[in-house]
Each structure stands twice: as C-alpha cells, then as structure tokens.
Design a protein around this nucleic acid. Structure first.
Length: 280
DNA sequence: GTCGATGTTATCAA
DNA sequence: TTTGATAACATCGA
C-alpha cells in the first residue's frame, strides 16, 4: 500500500529514469483510473517533455513542458514500472507512456483505486486534487504540528489517517508511528497534551525517514519502479504483528478495528492515559 | 465455492 | 463542522 515513503521512493526513481524524456506515444485501456478522455490525453501528451517530478502526500506530480501536469495517485494496489523493453499489456496494466528513447512508464493497478489525471498547472493556483491536503509531515515544524493537532476532536489514529489534517500517512505508518511514540490508537487527540504531541511529531519524522531509507514497505504488492521490494516491512514493530511479542516489553501485540481498518498496538507500552499534568 | 480481510478516497448521511 | 458508513475493485486464504 503506497504511503508517503513508498511514493517518495517512486518519485526519486522517476527523477533518475524519466526526467527530461520526451513522450513519443501513449497506450491506454479505458477504465476508471483515467480521469480524462482518451483522445484528449493522447493529443495533449504527445511530444511533451517531463520537466519536473514532485511528490505531495501520496500523489506524484509530473510536470510537462507545456503548462500541463500529470497527477498520479496509486490508491491501494497501483504500481508504476519503468521498462526498457516492449512487453505486452497484462490484465491489470492500464496506462503506458512511451518515450523517444524507447523506454516506457507503465501504470498497473489490480483493484483500480488509483488515479491518473492530466490537469492545467498555474503557479498561482493550487491544483484541485492537492488543495485539500494537510501539510507534509516531514516539513511541518514541531510547534505547528502541535497547534494543528490540538484543534482536533477525534481519535489520534483516525486523525493521522486524515489526509486533510496531514498528508501522506496511511495505515502502516500510523501504527508504526503510534508505537514509536507509545500512544494508544484510540486516545483522543485533545487528551494528549503538547508534550506527547511533540513526541509524536518526533516519532513521525523518525519512522518516515527510516522507511524512506529502506525504500518503503512491501507488505503484499508494493514494488518500486524497477520492480524491487522495499525493506521497511522487516522493521515493522506493530503493523501486521498481532499475537507476536512487543519488541520493547514482550507483551503480545493486539489488533483492534478502527475506522474500518486494522490497528495494531502494544497494550502495555501504548496505554491510554489521558493528558499528564503539564509543568509549564 | 463462499466469505472475510485487505485499506484508499469520494460521497453521502447523521 | 465533523464524524462515520459505504461503495468502488480484485485477490487471497480459511
């Protein structure tokens, strides 16, 4: 499931493989992933160069030589693959850009929750798809993070998953982050207090950075551009570890359902304890 | 062969 | 305003 570290890994790969290349042709099988008409897409993309590759939350943004951008969201099972040989379209392959040096960028998506969209870019106006996103977790300062979260009413896990609050965190990194910060997923954000929110900010930075270094987590189907797995799943301490011993205290990791998703946590390390008295 | 789990976002209801 | 449920979709495993 591509979250910030996986998407960042892919964006870095794209800069190494397709930056500056010219689109020669495009191949697509119409489906809901495509947000534009196929005719319009082919016409507009032809002969354009990839001038910039960016990431915002879980979105990849390819800037083109005109004032167009391609916005890609991988959903749950979306994959981007860089190919140097012509290989036939499989059942789950949906879009392919062919570059003038006969290399290819292919978008595959088993469950078709991904998005591929061509949009107009202007430096003044934020793109529709990105406007509602909260700040980048690796860019926001500790003070701003605390101020941002203090306003929220819900449970901390649900809040971390909300892209409008903070962008790029999904189920895996929410669980890993809360484990690192020793916070129970069901704890109310407003009960955490500035000191524990500060710890959480630190944990978010630590976990996301380590995950990017490891090339992301390959839980069932994530692969990078070259088709290679990430390594961070080997360092997961909470996610997917129900019944296994906590790496800190040996207590069995528990699983509960929150916002219709699994939440894994250590019942001993991550006790709900409300706001401790603040000394300052 | 059926059913539940997987987890992202848009949309709609409360 | 905010939260919660549901649908979109395909595969895997019990």
């Amino acid at each position: 499931m591509p979250e910030l570290p996986e998407v960042e890994t892919i964006a870095r790969g794209l800069r190494k493989t397709i930056l500056g290349k010219k689109i020669k042709s495009i191949k697509l099988s119409p489906c809901r992933i495509l947000q534009n008409s196929t005719v319009c897409l082919s016409n507009k993309l032809n002969r354009q160069k990839i001038t910039q590759v960016k990431r915002r939350g879980k979105n990849i943004i390819l800037h083109l030589s005109g004032d167009d951008v391609i916005i890609i969201h991988l959903g749950m099972t979306g994959q981007l693959l860089f190919l140097t040989n012509k290989t036939p379209f499989g059942k789950h392959d949906h879009i392919e850009l062919r570059f003038s040096d006969n290399t290819f960028l292919r978008f595959s998506d088993i469950r078709k929750f991904g998005k591929f969209k061509l949009a107009k870019f202007s430096p003044q106006k934020k793109l529709d798809d990105l406007r509602e996103l909260g700040p980048e977790p690796l860019e926001i300062t500790k003070d701003a993070f605390i101020r941002l979260l203090q306003k929220r009413k819900g449970k901390i896990k649900t809040t971390l998953l909300n892209q409008r609050v903070i962008a790029g965190i999904g189920n895996i990194y929410a669980d890993e982050t809360l484990f690192e910060a020793k916070i129970h997923p069901e704890e109310k954000v407003c009960d955490l207090g500035p000191s524990r929110l500060g710890k959480l900010h630190q944990a978010v930075r630590k976990i996301l950075k380590k995950a990017i270094q490891a090339g992301g987590s390959s839980v069932d189907d994530y692969l990078n551009l070259e088709g290679i797995k990430g390594f961070f799943q080997l360092q997961h301490k909470a996610y997917g570890r129900e019944g296994k011993p906590c790496t800190r205290c040996n207590t069995k990791i528990e699983r509960i359902v929150l916002s219709q998703r699994s939440s894994y946590f250590c019942p001993k390390c991550q006790k709900s304890r409300g706001s401790p008295p603040e000394t300052d």
